[in-house]
């Protein structure tokens, strides 16, 4: 049975969201249509005002509710350490560790010619400007170990290393508490490749 037209439009919109397939979209649509109109109005106005209130931080390009995001505005963060990440999700992931006390630079994606993303489409120019800061000791390229992440890491390291900066990247290999016989072959092979001497 086809859905009523307006509901179909709604389901189609939901389906464009990441991680939402047809069934989930339909479920969300039906759930919302069962709510009182006031609840829907509240949701719609929250959506619009959130989008209106948020913009990009003028320093690191992460999402911010002002001109500058909270991390860039925090004087307690270590200005000597800068993590370059692809997006906000990666900032959140590093923040959850509570170990990283430095600052961020959000590229807004990774190099991917297939998707038409080259260096011009990423926030690289502003990154190079930030690197002039004499307080900076180390740049951590915290990009994912995919084909696109590695190409971006390499592209940036070519720009950064000649500037005399200490350039690091995340280690890849075993996850914490992993049992060797359960780890998949690819990860284990990487960990083997990146083995290091003890003491």
């Amino acid at each position: 049975m086809p859905l009523p037209g307006p509901l179909q439009d709604l389901v189609a919109e939901f389906q464009r969201l990441p991680g939402i397939g047809h069934k989930s979209a339909q479920r969300l649509g039906l759930h919302l249509m069962a709510q009182p109109v006031e609840a829907i109005e509240r949701l719609a106005s929250v959506l619009v005002s959130a989008r209106r209130a948020l913009s990009r931080c003028s320093v690191c390009h992460d999402l911010a509710d002002g001109a500058i995001c909270r991390i860039c505005a925090d004087p307690a963060r270590d200005g000597g350490l800068l993590a370059v990440v692809s997006g906000t999700r990666e900032v959140l992931a590093l923040e959850r560790t509570r170990e990283f006390k430095g600052r961020y630079h959000v590229l807004g994606g990774l190099l991917s010619p297939l998707d038409g993303i080259g260096p011009e489409q990423l926030n690289i120019r502003t990154l190079l400007e930030r690197l002039r800061d004499p307080a900076l000791r180390e740049v951590l390229l915290a990009l994912e170990p995919t084909v696109e992440g590695e190409a971006t890491t390499l592209y940036l390291s070519r720009l950064l290393v000649p500037m005399g900066l200490t350039c690091t990247r995340l280690a890849s290999g075993l996850s914490a508490g992993a049992e060797l016989d359960i780890v998949d072959e690819v990860t284990l092979a990487r960990a083997f490749e990146g083995r290091r001497p003890i003491a």
Binding site: P113, L114, G118, V147, A151
Partner: peptide, 26 residues
Amino acid sequence: VQRNALIRHILTGAATASQLEAWDEP
């Protein structure tokens, strides 16, 4: 596939040949 896509972008002028360097090593 990615490197070939970049080559096509270079041919249309949408990218510069120097961008190949990031893809050549991987």
